[in-house]
Amino acid sequence: GIPATNLSRVAGLEKQLAIELKVKQGAENMIQTYSNGSTKDRKLLLTAQQMLQDSKTKIDIIRMQLRRALQ
């Protein structure tokens, strides 16, 4: 079985993952909103794209940590 310490770690990672998935969803929504907007929305679009990139990276890292914890 999986050690108890790993189980609480997994629960924490799953919570983090859920949050990051919401951030990713929000960033994707912002990108959709701003991509057909005016030029003043360009900065917001770039910010949203950066957020999305960061979020995807975090999600990958969390998933990797989850896999390790579940081994």
Rank of each mutant, 00 (worst) to 15 (best):
G1N: 09
I2M: 13
I2T: 07
I2N: 13
P3L: 09
P3W: 05
P3E: 12
A4M: 07
A4L: 05
T5G: 09
T5M: 07
T5S: 07
T5N: 12
N6S: 11
L7E: 12
S8D: 15
S8E: 15
S8A: 15
R9N: 11
R9C: 15
R9K: 13
R9D: 11
V10Q: 02
V10F: 02
V10P: 02
A11C: 15
G12T: 14
L13M: 03
E14A: 14
K15F: 09
K15M: 07
K15G: 03
K15H: 06
K15I: 05
K15A: 08
Q16F: 04
Q16Y: 04
L17W: 01
L17H: 01
A18V: 05
A18D: 04
I19T: 05
I19S: 08
E20D: 01
L21N: 04
L21K: 03
K22S: 06
K22E: 07
K22F: 04
V23C: 09
V23L: 07
V23H: 08
K24V: 04
K24P: 00
Q25K: 13
Q25A: 10
G26F: 10
E28G: 01
E28V: 10
E28D: 03
E28L: 13
E28N: 03
N29M: 08
N29V: 11
N29Q: 12
M30L: 10
M30D: 10
M30C: 09
I31T: 01
I31N: 01
I31V: 08
I31H: 00
Q32P: 01
Q32V: 10
T33I: 14
T33H: 06
T33Q: 13
T33D: 10
T33K: 12
Y34G: 01
Y34S: 02
Y34H: 04
Y34E: 01
Y34T: 02
Y34P: 01
S35F: 11
N36E: 13
G37W: 01
G37E: 05
S38Q: 09
T39K: 09
T39H: 08
K40V: 09
K40F: 11
K40E: 11
K40L: 10
R42F: 07
R42S: 15
K43N: 14
K43S: 09
K43V: 13
K43D: 12
K43Y: 10
L44R: 06
L44W: 04
L44I: 05
L46H: 08
L46C: 12
L46Y: 07
T47W: 06
T47H: 12
A48L: 10
A48C: 04
Q49P: 00
Q49I: 14
M51H: 04
L52V: 03
L52A: 02
Q53F: 08
Q53K: 11
Q53S: 09
D54E: 12
D54Y: 05
D54P: 00
D54L: 09
S55P: 00
K56G: 02
K56D: 04
K56W: 04
T57A: 10
T57Y: 05
T57V: 11
T57N: 13
T57L: 09
T57S: 08
K58S: 03
K58P: 00
K58N: 03
I59A: 02
D60M: 14
D60A: 15
I62N: 00
R63K: 09
R63P: 00
M64I: 07
Q65N: 04
Q65G: 02
Q65I: 05
L66V: 02
L66E: 00
L66Q: 01
L66F: 01
L66P: 00
L66H: 01
L66N: 00
L66A: 00
R67Q: 11
R67V: 11
R67D: 12
R67G: 03
R67N: 05
R68W: 13
R68F: 14
A69E: 11
A69I: 13
L70W: 07
Q71V: 06
Q71F: 06
